[in-house]
Design a protein around this nucleic acid. Sequence first.
DNA 1: ATACTTGCAAATCGTTTGCAATACC
DNA 2: GGTATTGCAAACGATTTGCAAGTAT
Lengths: 160, 160
Amino acid sequence: MTERRYTALIERLKQVGLRPTRQRLALAKLLFDPSPTEQAAPPSGGEAGGEPRACDRHITAEQLHDEAVGAGQPVSLATVYNTLHQFTEAGLLREVVVEPGRSYFDTNVTDHHHFFFEGNGRLLDIPGDQIQLADLPSAPEGSRIRRVDVIVRLADGEAD
Amino acid sequence: MTERRYTALIERLKQVGLRPTRQRLALAKLLFDPSPTEQAAPPSGGEAGGEPRACDRHITAEQLHDEAVGAGQPVSLATVYNTLHQFTEAGLLREVVVEPGRSYFDTNVTDHHHFFFEGNGRLLDIPGDQIQLADLPSAPEGSRIRRVDVIVRLADGEAD
DNA sequence: ATACTTGCAAATCGTTTGCAATACC
DNA sequence: GGTATTGCAAACGATTTGCAAGTAT
């Protein structure tokens, strides 16, 4: 019966040429669909919401794997890696590299930047229009700019 | 006799509280001192030099290790890693993270940014004053901005 | 003399791969 | 049925660690 909720996700996968397998759907749901499936619904109410955007997640393969297993949707870690890369190539995700050793995957694929909390390794989106990049030097001969990443690295402690 | 050339490097290490050991000096020389020690001097002449800055290097631990060995200054890879991190903590180097899996170390510790050639994994400095960051959002409560990294990712191919 | 450094080899971590079993169209 | 996908376990590359032997002050 919960099947019906997946139709949108199924469409989305098909559109990018990926077969909507059980594991891809489970991962897509965790990534793109904020509402829980059969876990206890988290109490709503806090969140003085500004933007109504579904939910921007910054997640590692390991974290997503844990979530899937925890949600009763066992998926092998190898498949999580495969899927994350396939989603990224398909433009459903964006890979964010801020720390040596591990990659984050961002469900927000619009033009934007990041705060990075070095203390706890958490990422926070900065809307693209909230940073103005002036005087960007032109790309060197024979290359083109594919993307500009701005990472504002934060440490604990107040002001200066 | 070549000993005399190291006095400046020795001072530099002492100033940051690191004993000037043989291996740290060898690595410091490779990193900070452009002129070769006893290898055939590379033909000068090309380089239509704009700024006279010694030499900005973007190097991985593995690369530096190879250079040291190749220069007849064998240093263990573990020591290269230790040293790179010590130099970084001491403010002599800056770690640059652009690719999952490996870290680059930048001898330029002034305020600046980077071009990153995704094709060949090479980095190129962008002087700090060549990019204007306007409207930087303020750091979230309880944190302070430690650094802002701008990475201009380049792909092969001309313009758009 | 003593504390700091080094090098080795093993351990660790995140990630990738080969390949047989399995699921989708 | 045929191809795409999965899962496992092994392989991998970069980096780190423990610890005995060596070195700077």
